[in-house]
Simulated scan of single mutants.
Amino acid sequence: MIWRHSNCVAKVRTESANRLAVLHLDANQPVVLEGTAVTIWDLIDGERTEQALLAELECCFEDQTAQMQSQIEAFLANLAAQHLIEPAHATNQ
């Protein structure tokens, strides 16, 4: 799957770039991402597949527990459930 950021999302990043607040315009509360979550968000570009995203993260972070793939899949599913990301081939309604 290739993901992209939803066009209906507002973003605010701290100066240090370690925190990012994202808000779907139909939601009441923002989602605050920190650390690795911000790195993943930044890698979601509408071009990378999930496998390419995982490979990039494996280069950056040591996966001592061998659970990185399942954790990333769950994180992406959570972002998609909140309509913060969508499949790259989707069209906005």
Rank of each mutant, 00 (worst) to 15 (best):
Gln51Leu: 10
Leu84His: 05
Leu54Lys: 07
Glu86Ala: 08
Leu20Asp: 04
His89Tyr: 11
Val32Asn: 13
Ala27Tyr: 01
Asp45Thr: 03
His83Phe: 09
Ile72His: 04
Cys60Asn: 05
Thr39Asn: 10
Leu76Cys: 08
Glu47His: 15
Val12Tyr: 04
Gln93Asp: 10
Leu57Glu: 11
Gln71Lys: 15
Val38Phe: 07
His5Val: 01
Leu57Val: 12
Trp41Asn: 04
Glu50Ser: 13
Glu58Phe: 03
Arg13Val: 02
Val32Lys: 08
Val12Asn: 05
Trp3Cys: 00
Leu79Arg: 04
Gly35Arg: 07
Ala52Gly: 14
Ala37Gln: 13
Ala66Trp: 05
Gln51Tyr: 04
Phe75His: 12
Ile85Trp: 02
Glu15Leu: 07
Val22Ile: 15
Gly35Val: 10
Val38Arg: 07
Cys59Lys: 14
Asn28Tyr: 08
Ala74Ile: 03
Val31Asp: 10
Ile85Ser: 00
Ala88Val: 01
Phe61Ser: 11
Leu43Glu: 14
Thr65Gly: 09
Cys8Ser: 08
His24Trp: 02
Ala81Tyr: 05
Met68Thr: 07
Leu54Ala: 09
Asp42Arg: 13
Leu33Pro: 03
Pro30Arg: 02
Gln51Asn: 14
Asp26Pro: 00
Ala55Tyr: 07
Lys11Glu: 13
Ile2Tyr: 01
Thr39Ala: 12
Asp26Arg: 11
Arg19Thr: 09
Val38Glu: 10
Leu33Arg: 09
Arg48Pro: 05
Gly46Ile: 02
Ala77His: 08
Glu62Tyr: 14
Arg4Asn: 00
Ala37His: 12
Glu56Ile: 14
Thr36Met: 13
Gly46Glu: 03
Gln93Glu: 11
Leu25Gln: 12
Asn7Trp: 03
Asn28Lys: 10
Gln67Lys: 15
Ala90Arg: 02
Asn18Glu: 14
Ile44Ser: 00
His5Cys: 00
Ile40Trp: 10
Thr65Ile: 10
Asn78Leu: 14
Ala88Asp: 01
Ala27Gln: 11
Gln93Ala: 08
Met68Cys: 05
Arg48Lys: 15
Lys11Ala: 10
Lys11Met: 12
His5Tyr: 01
Pro87Tyr: 04
Gly46Asn: 08
